[in-house]
Write a protein that binds this DNA or RNA. Structure first.
Ligand code: FES
Ligand code: FES
Lengths: 141, 141
DNA sequence: TAATCGGCGATCATTAAGGTCGGATATATA
DNA sequence: TATATATCCGACCTTAATGATCGCCGATTA
Protein backbone atom coordinates (compact mmCIF):
# COMPACT_ATOMS: atom_id res chain seq x y z
CA UNK A 1 0.00 0.00 0.00
CA UNK A 2 1.96 2.96 -1.33
CA UNK A 3 5.18 1.41 -0.08
CA UNK A 4 8.71 1.33 -1.40
CA UNK A 5 10.23 -2.12 -1.76
CA UNK A 6 13.23 -3.53 0.04
CA UNK A 7 15.10 -3.52 -3.23
CA UNK A 8 14.90 0.24 -3.34
CA UNK A 9 16.16 0.43 0.23
CA UNK A 10 19.08 -1.82 -0.65
CA UNK A 11 19.88 0.18 -3.75
CA UNK A 12 19.95 3.42 -1.77
CA UNK A 13 22.19 1.94 0.90
CA UNK A 14 24.53 0.56 -1.71
CA UNK A 15 24.76 3.84 -3.56
CA UNK A 16 25.29 5.65 -0.30
CA UNK A 17 28.16 3.30 0.47
CA UNK A 18 29.69 3.61 -2.98
CA UNK A 19 29.59 7.36 -2.87
CA UNK A 20 31.84 7.19 0.18
CA UNK A 21 34.19 4.77 -1.52
CA UNK A 22 34.75 7.24 -4.32
CA UNK A 23 36.96 5.84 -7.08
CA UNK A 24 37.75 2.52 -5.42
CA UNK A 25 35.48 -0.41 -6.16
CA UNK A 26 32.96 -1.74 -3.68
CA UNK A 27 32.15 -5.42 -3.89
CA UNK A 28 28.76 -6.92 -3.27
CA UNK A 29 29.77 -9.15 -0.37
CA UNK A 30 31.27 -6.22 1.49
CA UNK A 31 28.13 -4.12 1.20
CA UNK A 32 25.88 -7.04 2.06
CA UNK A 33 27.80 -7.75 5.25
CA UNK A 34 27.90 -4.18 6.45
CA UNK A 35 24.21 -3.51 6.00
CA UNK A 36 23.04 -7.05 6.69
CA UNK A 37 21.50 -7.51 3.25
CA UNK A 38 21.01 -10.96 1.68
CA UNK A 39 23.95 -11.29 -0.68
CA UNK A 40 22.16 -12.75 -3.69
CA UNK A 41 19.36 -10.24 -3.54
CA UNK A 42 21.69 -7.30 -3.30
CA UNK A 43 23.66 -8.77 -6.18
CA UNK A 44 20.57 -8.70 -8.34
CA UNK A 45 19.77 -5.14 -7.45
CA UNK A 46 23.30 -4.06 -8.30
CA UNK A 47 23.21 -5.96 -11.58
CA UNK A 48 20.07 -4.07 -12.45
CA UNK A 49 21.65 -0.76 -11.55
CA UNK A 50 24.68 -1.65 -13.66
CA UNK A 51 22.50 -2.56 -16.61
CA UNK A 52 20.72 0.76 -16.35
CA UNK A 53 23.98 2.65 -16.22
CA UNK A 54 23.88 3.97 -12.69
CA UNK A 55 26.96 2.02 -11.66
CA UNK A 56 29.85 0.35 -13.47
CA UNK A 57 30.87 -3.23 -12.85
CA UNK A 58 34.42 -4.46 -12.66
CA UNK A 59 34.61 -8.19 -13.12
CA UNK A 60 37.07 -10.70 -11.64
CA UNK A 61 38.88 -10.76 -8.28
CA UNK A 62 39.31 -7.31 -6.77
CA UNK A 63 36.29 -6.45 -8.83
CA UNK A 64 33.11 -4.74 -7.75
CA UNK A 65 31.14 -1.63 -8.57
CA UNK A 66 31.78 2.08 -8.80
CA UNK A 67 29.32 4.89 -9.29
CA UNK A 68 28.82 5.94 -12.88
CA UNK A 69 26.83 9.06 -12.03
CA UNK A 70 27.00 11.61 -9.30
CA UNK A 71 24.26 10.99 -6.69
CA UNK A 72 23.09 14.55 -7.17
CA UNK A 73 22.04 13.89 -10.77
CA UNK A 74 20.21 10.63 -10.08
CA UNK A 75 16.62 11.08 -9.00
CA UNK A 76 14.61 8.79 -6.78
CA UNK A 77 12.06 8.41 -9.55
CA UNK A 78 14.69 7.17 -11.99
CA UNK A 79 16.03 4.72 -9.45
CA UNK A 80 12.59 3.28 -8.74
CA UNK A 81 11.84 2.89 -12.42
CA UNK A 82 15.23 1.25 -12.99
CA UNK A 83 14.59 -1.40 -10.37
CA UNK A 84 10.84 -1.88 -10.30
CA UNK A 85 9.67 -0.63 -13.65
CA UNK A 86 7.18 2.17 -14.33
CA UNK A 87 5.52 3.76 -11.33
CA UNK A 88 1.79 3.13 -11.30
CA UNK A 89 -0.18 4.44 -8.36
CA UNK A 90 -3.36 3.21 -10.03
CA UNK A 91 -3.20 -0.33 -11.41
CA UNK A 92 -5.52 -0.09 -14.41
CA UNK A 93 -3.96 1.20 -17.59
CA UNK A 94 -6.05 2.63 -20.41
CA UNK A 95 -6.14 -0.41 -22.65
CA UNK A 96 -6.50 -2.82 -19.76
CA UNK A 97 -9.41 -5.21 -20.15
CA UNK A 98 -8.74 -7.33 -17.08
CA UNK A 99 -10.27 -4.83 -14.66
CA UNK A 100 -13.95 -5.48 -14.16
CA UNK A 101 -14.67 -1.84 -13.41
CA UNK A 102 -13.25 -0.49 -16.64
CA UNK A 103 -16.64 -0.02 -18.29
CA UNK A 104 -18.02 2.46 -15.78
CA UNK A 105 -14.85 3.50 -13.99
CA UNK A 106 -15.14 7.12 -12.90
CA UNK A 107 -11.81 7.50 -11.21
CA UNK A 108 -9.10 6.30 -13.54
CA UNK A 109 -8.29 9.51 -15.29
CA UNK A 110 -8.49 11.82 -12.25
CA UNK A 111 -6.15 9.48 -10.40
CA UNK A 112 -3.73 9.58 -13.29
CA UNK A 113 -3.23 13.27 -12.65
CA UNK A 114 -2.39 12.60 -9.04
CA UNK A 115 -0.03 9.85 -10.08
CA UNK A 116 1.65 12.25 -12.44
CA UNK A 117 2.22 14.77 -9.69
CA UNK A 118 3.74 12.21 -7.37
CA UNK A 119 6.01 10.91 -10.12
CA UNK A 120 6.94 14.49 -10.85
CA UNK A 121 7.87 14.96 -7.22
CA UNK A 122 9.95 11.77 -7.13
CA UNK A 123 11.73 12.89 -10.27
CA UNK A 124 12.86 15.98 -8.44
CA UNK A 125 14.30 14.25 -5.41
CA UNK A 126 17.96 13.52 -5.96
CA UNK A 127 19.69 10.55 -4.42
CA UNK A 128 22.21 12.65 -2.54
CA UNK A 129 19.31 14.16 -0.61
CA UNK A 130 18.76 10.67 0.76
CA UNK A 131 22.30 9.37 0.82
CA UNK A 132 24.02 11.83 3.09
CA UNK A 133 24.71 9.53 6.01
CA UNK A 134 28.16 8.66 7.18
CA UNK A 135 29.61 5.22 6.66
CA UNK A 136 31.53 4.14 9.79
CA UNK A 137 35.23 4.28 8.97
CA UNK A 138 36.11 0.89 10.37
CA UNK A 139 33.48 -0.76 8.18
CA UNK A 140 34.21 0.95 4.92
CA UNK A 141 36.95 -1.54 4.11
CA UNK B 1 4.96 -0.92 -5.31
CA UNK B 2 3.65 2.55 -4.52
CA UNK B 3 0.16 1.49 -5.53
CA UNK B 4 -3.28 2.33 -4.27
CA UNK B 5 -5.43 -0.65 -3.37
CA UNK B 6 -8.69 -1.75 -4.95
CA UNK B 7 -10.48 -0.82 -1.75
CA UNK B 8 -9.55 2.80 -2.27
CA UNK B 9 -10.81 2.62 -5.83
CA UNK B 10 -14.08 1.15 -4.65
CA UNK B 11 -14.45 3.76 -1.93
CA UNK B 12 -13.94 6.56 -4.43
CA UNK B 13 -16.46 5.12 -6.85
CA UNK B 14 -19.00 4.67 -4.07
CA UNK B 15 -18.55 8.21 -2.81
CA UNK B 16 -18.80 9.49 -6.33
CA UNK B 17 -22.08 7.64 -6.73
CA UNK B 18 -23.44 8.82 -3.42
CA UNK B 19 -22.64 12.41 -4.16
CA UNK B 20 -24.93 12.13 -7.16
CA UNK B 21 -27.66 10.53 -5.12
CA UNK B 22 -27.72 13.51 -2.80
CA UNK B 23 -30.08 13.05 0.15
CA UNK B 24 -31.53 9.71 -0.93
CA UNK B 25 -29.83 6.57 0.35
CA UNK B 26 -27.65 4.37 -1.84
CA UNK B 27 -27.51 0.70 -0.98
CA UNK B 28 -24.48 -1.52 -1.31
CA UNK B 29 -25.98 -3.96 -3.80
CA UNK B 30 -26.94 -1.16 -6.13
CA UNK B 31 -23.46 0.32 -6.17
CA UNK B 32 -21.83 -3.08 -6.50
CA UNK B 33 -23.92 -3.94 -9.54
CA UNK B 34 -23.34 -0.67 -11.33
CA UNK B 35 -19.59 -0.65 -10.96
CA UNK B 36 -19.13 -4.43 -11.01
CA UNK B 37 -17.62 -4.57 -7.55
CA UNK B 38 -17.74 -7.74 -5.39
CA UNK B 39 -20.66 -7.10 -3.05
CA UNK B 40 -19.12 -8.33 0.20
CA UNK B 41 -15.89 -6.47 -0.36
CA UNK B 42 -17.65 -3.21 -1.13
CA UNK B 43 -19.79 -3.77 1.97
CA UNK B 44 -16.70 -3.93 4.11
CA UNK B 45 -15.28 -0.78 2.64
CA UNK B 46 -18.52 1.09 3.23
CA UNK B 47 -18.72 -0.18 6.79
CA UNK B 48 -15.26 1.17 7.36
CA UNK B 49 -16.22 4.52 5.90
CA UNK B 50 -19.33 4.61 8.08
CA UNK B 51 -17.30 3.83 11.20
CA UNK B 52 -14.92 6.65 10.38
CA UNK B 53 -17.79 9.08 9.89
CA UNK B 54 -17.50 9.71 6.17
CA UNK B 55 -20.91 8.25 5.44
CA UNK B 56 -24.03 7.50 7.51
CA UNK B 57 -25.70 4.11 7.51
CA UNK B 58 -29.43 3.55 7.49
CA UNK B 59 -30.29 0.02 8.52
CA UNK B 60 -33.21 -2.17 7.44
CA UNK B 61 -35.07 -2.42 4.13
CA UNK B 62 -34.90 0.76 2.09
CA UNK B 63 -31.72 1.36 4.02
CA UNK B 64 -28.29 2.21 2.69
CA UNK B 65 -25.75 4.97 2.98
CA UNK B 66 -25.68 8.71 2.58
CA UNK B 67 -22.73 11.05 2.60
CA UNK B 68 -21.96 12.60 5.96
CA UNK B 69 -19.42 15.08 4.62
CA UNK B 70 -19.16 17.09 1.48
CA UNK B 71 -16.63 15.54 -0.95
CA UNK B 72 -14.80 18.84 -1.06
CA UNK B 73 -13.83 18.62 2.59
CA UNK B 74 -12.67 15.01 2.53
CA UNK B 75 -9.08 14.56 1.42
CA UNK B 76 -7.57 11.57 -0.34
CA UNK B 77 -5.09 11.19 2.50
CA UNK B 78 -7.86 10.92 5.08
CA UNK B 79 -9.68 8.37 2.96
CA UNK B 80 -6.60 6.20 2.55
CA UNK B 81 -5.88 6.29 6.28
CA UNK B 82 -9.50 5.47 7.07
CA UNK B 83 -9.44 2.35 4.95
CA UNK B 84 -5.85 1.16 5.01
CA UNK B 85 -4.40 2.69 8.13
CA UNK B 86 -1.42 5.03 8.36
CA UNK B 87 0.47 5.71 5.14
CA UNK B 88 3.99 4.35 5.28
CA UNK B 89 6.13 4.72 2.21
CA UNK B 90 9.03 3.19 4.11
CA UNK B 91 8.23 0.02 6.07
CA UNK B 92 10.56 0.31 9.03
CA UNK B 93 9.31 2.42 11.91
CA UNK B 94 11.68 3.86 14.49
CA UNK B 95 11.21 1.28 17.23
CA UNK B 96 11.05 -1.59 14.78
CA UNK B 97 13.45 -4.41 15.62
CA UNK B 98 12.35 -6.85 12.96
CA UNK B 99 14.29 -5.16 10.17
CA UNK B 100 17.79 -6.58 9.87
CA UNK B 101 19.18 -3.31 8.52
CA UNK B 102 18.08 -1.19 11.44
CA UNK B 103 21.50 -1.10 13.05
CA UNK B 104 23.31 0.61 10.18
CA UNK B 105 20.38 1.92 8.19
CA UNK B 106 21.33 5.17 6.50
CA UNK B 107 18.13 5.87 4.69
CA UNK B 108 15.27 5.64 7.14
CA UNK B 109 15.14 9.22 8.31
CA UNK B 110 15.74 10.87 4.92
CA UNK B 111 12.96 8.75 3.44
CA UNK B 112 10.65 9.82 6.25
CA UNK B 113 10.89 13.38 4.98
CA UNK B 114 9.88 12.29 1.52
CA UNK B 115 7.04 10.28 2.97
CA UNK B 116 5.90 13.34 4.85
CA UNK B 117 5.80 15.42 1.70
CA UNK B 118 3.76 12.84 -0.17
CA UNK B 119 1.32 12.52 2.72
CA UNK B 120 1.12 16.28 2.80
CA UNK B 121 0.25 16.30 -0.87
CA UNK B 122 -2.42 13.62 -0.45
CA UNK B 123 -3.89 15.58 2.43
CA UNK B 124 -4.43 18.47 0.08
CA UNK B 125 -6.23 16.56 -2.63
CA UNK B 126 -9.97 16.65 -2.02
CA UNK B 127 -12.27 13.85 -3.06
CA UNK B 128 -14.36 16.04 -5.30
CA UNK B 129 -11.26 16.63 -7.42
CA UNK B 130 -11.41 12.91 -8.16
CA UNK B 131 -15.16 12.32 -8.05
CA UNK B 132 -16.43 14.65 -10.71
CA UNK B 133 -17.59 12.07 -13.21
CA UNK B 134 -21.19 11.66 -14.24
CA UNK B 135 -23.26 8.68 -13.19
CA UNK B 136 -25.41 7.48 -16.09
CA UNK B 137 -28.98 8.48 -15.33
CA UNK B 138 -30.54 5.12 -16.14
CA UNK B 139 -28.25 3.40 -13.67
CA UNK B 140 -28.60 5.77 -10.76
CA UNK B 141 -31.73 4.02 -9.56
C1' DT C 1 45.26 -22.53 -13.02
C1' DA C 2 42.96 -21.69 -8.90
C1' DA C 3 40.44 -18.44 -6.30
C1' DT C 4 37.41 -14.56 -6.51
C1' DC C 5 34.42 -11.78 -8.44
C1' DG C 6 30.01 -10.41 -11.26
C1' DG C 7 25.99 -12.34 -14.46
C1' DC C 8 21.80 -14.77 -14.88
C1' DG C 9 17.81 -17.83 -14.88
C1' DA C 10 14.90 -20.79 -12.19
C1' DT C 11 12.79 -21.60 -8.05
C1' DC C 12 10.96 -21.48 -3.30
C1' DA C 13 8.89 -18.89 0.86
C1' DT C 14 6.51 -15.26 2.92
C1' DT C 15 3.35 -11.84 3.10
C1' DA C 16 -0.21 -8.63 1.66
C1' DA C 17 -4.12 -7.94 -1.01
C1' DG C 18 -8.37 -9.45 -2.95
C1' DG C 19 -12.24 -11.95 -2.41
C1' DT C 20 -15.69 -15.29 -0.09
C1' DC C 21 -18.74 -17.30 3.47
C1' DG C 22 -21.84 -17.69 7.34
C1' DG C 23 -24.36 -15.81 10.60
C1' DA C 24 -25.81 -11.83 13.32
C1' DT C 25 -28.71 -7.41 14.18
C1' DA C 26 -31.79 -3.72 12.68
C1' DT C 27 -36.11 -2.07 10.46
C1' DA C 28 -39.68 -1.00 6.97
C1' DT C 29 -43.82 -2.99 5.46
C1' DA C 30 -47.39 -6.44 4.65
C1' DT D 1 -46.02 -10.18 14.35
C1' DA D 2 -43.79 -12.34 10.32
C1' DT D 3 -40.82 -11.61 6.62
C1' DA D 4 -37.90 -9.69 3.49
C1' DT D 5 -34.16 -6.65 3.00
C1' DA D 6 -30.68 -4.08 4.53
C1' DT D 7 -26.36 -3.21 7.34
C1' DC D 8 -22.89 -5.40 10.44
C1' DC D 9 -18.88 -8.41 11.60
C1' DG D 10 -15.46 -11.91 11.95
C1' DA D 11 -13.36 -15.89 10.05
C1' DC D 12 -11.56 -17.88 6.15
C1' DC D 13 -9.67 -18.98 1.50
C1' DT D 14 -7.16 -17.62 -2.93
C1' DT D 15 -4.11 -15.16 -5.62
C1' DA D 16 -0.39 -12.23 -6.70
C1' DA D 17 3.69 -9.61 -5.36
C1' DT D 18 7.66 -9.40 -2.89
C1' DG D 19 11.60 -11.26 -0.67
C1' DA D 20 14.97 -14.58 -0.62
C1' DT D 21 17.66 -18.65 -2.29
C1' DC D 22 20.14 -21.88 -5.38
C1' DG D 23 23.10 -23.46 -9.01
C1' DC D 24 25.91 -22.75 -12.68
C1' DC D 25 28.32 -19.78 -15.93
C1' DG D 26 31.96 -16.39 -17.67
C1' DA D 27 35.49 -12.88 -16.60
C1' DT D 28 39.67 -11.57 -14.43
C1' DT D 29 43.67 -11.37 -11.75
C1' DA D 30 47.21 -13.12 -8.68
S1 FES E 1 -10.48 0.85 -14.74
FE1 FES E 1 -9.94 -0.48 -13.17
S2 FES E 1 -10.59 0.63 -11.40
FE2 FES E 1 -10.97 2.03 -12.98
S1 FES F 1 15.62 0.30 9.28
FE1 FES F 1 14.80 -1.17 7.95
S2 FES F 1 15.65 -0.51 6.04
FE2 FES F 1 16.29 1.05 7.36
Amino acid sequence: MLKLTKKIDYALMAINFMSFKGESVANTRNIAEIYNIPLELLAKVLQRLAKKGFIVSQNGPKGGYTLAKDPNVITLGELIRAIEGPIQIVHCTEGDTSCLQTARCTIRSPLRKIEHKIVDFLDNVTIDQICSEEVPEELAV
